[in-house]
C-alpha cells in the first residue's frame, strides 16, 4: 500500500501545514511516510503545494505523479493537479473559491466550501483543516483523533494553542462532509 496525497493552493492557505499534520498523524499511527513541499523562489502570494506519501513499507519516491487524493484549495491548483489524479482517486476541492466545476468521470469529485465553513467557525484560516478532515475520511486509514493529536502537537509547538479548538471543529466539519 502506498498512497500519495497532494495538497495545493495559494501560499498562505496553510497547505504545507495541512500536509505536515497528516504526515505526523500517519507516522504516529505506525505508517511509513514522507512529506515533500514545493520549494520555489516565491515566498508569498504564489502557489504552494506539498505531497504526502503514506505507505506500509519504506517510501520510494516522495514525488508522486499520480496522486490518489488531491486537495485543491483554489482554481489554479485544481487545473494544474486535477488531470494528474489517478483513476479511481479523489479530488477534494474548495467550493468556496472554485466556481467552474472540474469535470472528470474517472475520479470522485468532492466539493467542500472550505472557506465558508472556516468563516462560519470564526477563523477563516482554518479552511486547510476542513480540507484535512475530508482527507482523513477519504483515506480511511486512521481515526480523525490521530490528526487532532498531531495538530495539537504542531500548534503547541508553534505557541498557538488557542487556535486548537476552532481547528478541531474545522477537522470535524470536513470529515463529516466527505
Amino acid at each position: 500500500m502506498e498512497i500519495g496525497v497532494v495538497f495545493a493552493g495559494f501560499g498562505g492557505q496553510g497547505i504545507l501545514l495541512a500536509g505536515k499534520v497528516l504526515a505526523q498523524a500517519a507516522m504516529e499511527r505506525g505508517f511509513e511516510v514522507t512529506w515533500l513541499p514545493s520549494y520555489g523562489p516565491e515566498m508569498r502570494g504564489g502557489t504552494a503545494n506539498c505531497t504526502v506519501v503514506i505507505a506500509d513499507e519504506p517510501v520510494g519516491s516522495p514525488i508522486v505523479d499520480r496522486p490518489q487524493i488531491l486537495v485543491a484549495m483554489n482554481g489554479p491548483s485544481l487545473e494544474r493537479f486535477g488531470p494528474r489524479v489517478a483513476p479511481g482517486g479523489t479530488i477534494i476541492f474548495n467550493a468556496s473559491l472554485v466556481s467552474a466545476p472540474f469535470a472528470r468521470a474517472d475520479v470522485r469529485l468532492l466539493p467542500i466550501p472550505m472557506n465558508a465553513i472556516a468563516q462560519e467557525l470564526g477563523e477563516v484560516r482554518a479552511a486547510n483543516m476542513v480540507a484535512l478532515g475530508a482527507v482523513v475520511k477519504v483515506l480511511g486509514l486512521f481515526p480523525l483523533e490521530a490528526v487532532a493529536e498531531a495538530l495539537s502537537k504542531e500548534l503547541g509547538a508553534r505557541g498557538r494553542e488557542r487556535l486548537l479548538e476552532v481547528n478541531r471543529q474545522a477537522l470535524l466539519r470536513g470529515f463529516s462532509l466527505a
Binding site: K20, A23, M27, E32, V33, T34, W35, L36, P37, Y39, V59, P62, I63
Partner: peptide, 10 residues
C-alpha cells in the same frame, strides 16, 4: 539533493 533536503520523514 533538493528532494532529500526538503522532504520530511520520520
Amino acid at each position: 539533493d533538493g528532494m532529500l533536503g526538503q522532504m520530511m520523514e520520520p
